[in-house]
Computed example of a mutant assay.
Amino acid sequence: MLRDDLRTLWTEPRPPDAPDRVWRDWALLAAGLGGVVLEATLRENVVWRPVAVVFAVWLCVLSLWRRPRPLATVTLAFGSVAVLQLASLVAASGEPVGLDSGVVVLALVYALPRWGSGRDIVLGGTVILTAFALCAVTIETPAGEQAAGFVFLLLPGLIGAAVRFRVTARERQVDQIRSREREQLARELHDTVAHHVSAIVIRAQAGRVLAVTDPAAAVDALDGVEEEGARTLEEMRAMVTALRNPGAGAELAPPAGVADLERLARTAGGRLRVDLGLDGELGTLPPAVDAAVYRIVQESVTNAMRHAVDATEVVVRVTAERHAVRVSVRDNGHRTGRGRAGYGLAGLRERAALLGGKLQAGPGTEQGWHVEAELPRGRTESGAHPRPRR
């Protein structure tokens, strides 16, 4: 089992989208170089002062590449530590060479498990432990101080590993939410397409029966087949982009839609007043868009009830335009903490993207939390496709 864990660690890829440099890197570099200047100027008992100053500056500069090159920076930094310690041993100075400003090396220790691959972590950890063991053997210090130094050196690495695990766990949860949202959308689309196909079959059977006795009625039946077929193809285009679990069966219950929003507003009322406004032709929305509008409003109102502090009202507006449907949900409370969108909104963004729309959520300029969505209206009953020429 241990061998399998090591193999898994060795093949672990690097985290994606590692930032190259941010303002904190330049602040760290400035603080490190400032510390080097002050220490080199004011401190008296510095062994090999020019070498110590160059070495400290070297460590500060290496910190700029700790994210894109974590293994290389750790190898260069701790390799330099080992070489400098061996040189001190050969010269029989008996004192460690370096400045206290070299503590910036802890940033490299943090970056190794945070941004490195599994291979980088194993190899870089070996370099760190080798350099520490060399210093522990060649420098005469009490065992308690060596143990404390070992913990102090590895603590940033443990923090980096914890941060990486937390970020990875959150990304995994978001992916699971998106997968469930895709599966639910695919089930709804499955039911819709099955309904249209059933209507096509019935109209085709009726046209075949009427073809002999009433040709005009048969032509009308064929027009209906064409209409249902075009609508089915449009729903199928959306379905092929959604991921559905092949082993799951389709739910027979029809999904809730815009017609159910008034009931949602009544049941959600209590601590919060839900001001619902519907505008435009909303009765002929494609089923997938109809269900998405309901899900967006439902999730947004639920989040307002759970997280909006001191809120008294949620304003919901659903507006149908010629080519799009706009959904706006705003509350008048305020959020505690960092105001980050939850997992449910991540799933709604995925659903909106699958339908060719977009969804944005965040704190308002003055108060409350705002959710704005725009979904393509798609094909409606009044927007029939032209019949092909024969």
Rank of each mutant, 00 (worst) to 15 (best):
L282M: 06
L276N: 00
Q298W: 10
V325P: 03
S300L: 00
E299H: 04
R273K: 12
V309E: 15
H307G: 04
A268L: 07
E251P: 06
V314C: 06
R295H: 13
N303C: 04
E313W: 07
V293H: 04
G269Q: 09
V318Y: 08
P286T: 15
R244G: 15
R271W: 08
G269M: 08
R266W: 13
D310K: 04
G277I: 14
V297L: 08
V327K: 02
G257Y: 00
M305E: 14
R317M: 14
V240T: 14
P286H: 14
A248V: 12
E281W: 04
R322N: 12
A311R: 06
T267K: 07
P287A: 15
V316P: 06
A268F: 01
A256L: 08
R237S: 14
P286A: 15
G277K: 05
R263P: 10
A242S: 01
A259G: 09
L243N: 05
G249Q: 11
A253W: 07
A238V: 11
P255M: 13
R326S: 11
V258C: 05
D279N: 02
L272G: 08
M239P: 04
L276D: 07
V315S: 05
E281F: 01
V274H: 05
D260Q: 01
A292M: 08
T284H: 02
V258L: 07
Y294D: 06
R244C: 13
V240W: 11
V327T: 08
A311K: 00
R317C: 11
A256H: 04
V258D: 03
V309N: 10
A324P: 03
L282C: 03
R244I: 15
A288E: 11
T284I: 03
V297Q: 09
T302E: 14
E262C: 01
S300K: 07
G280Q: 09
P254H: 11
A242D: 01
R266T: 15
E321Y: 12
R263A: 13
L282Y: 05
L278T: 00
E321F: 12
A259M: 02
G249P: 01
A320E: 09
L278Q: 00
A238H: 13
A308T: 09
L243M: 04
E262R: 10
T284F: 01
L264N: 03
V315N: 06
T267N: 10
G269Y: 05
G270S: 12
D275H: 03
N245Y: 11
A248H: 09
V309Q: 12
I296E: 02
V274I: 15
A308L: 09
V325M: 00
G280R: 05
A304T: 13
T284C: 01
R273S: 12
G249M: 10
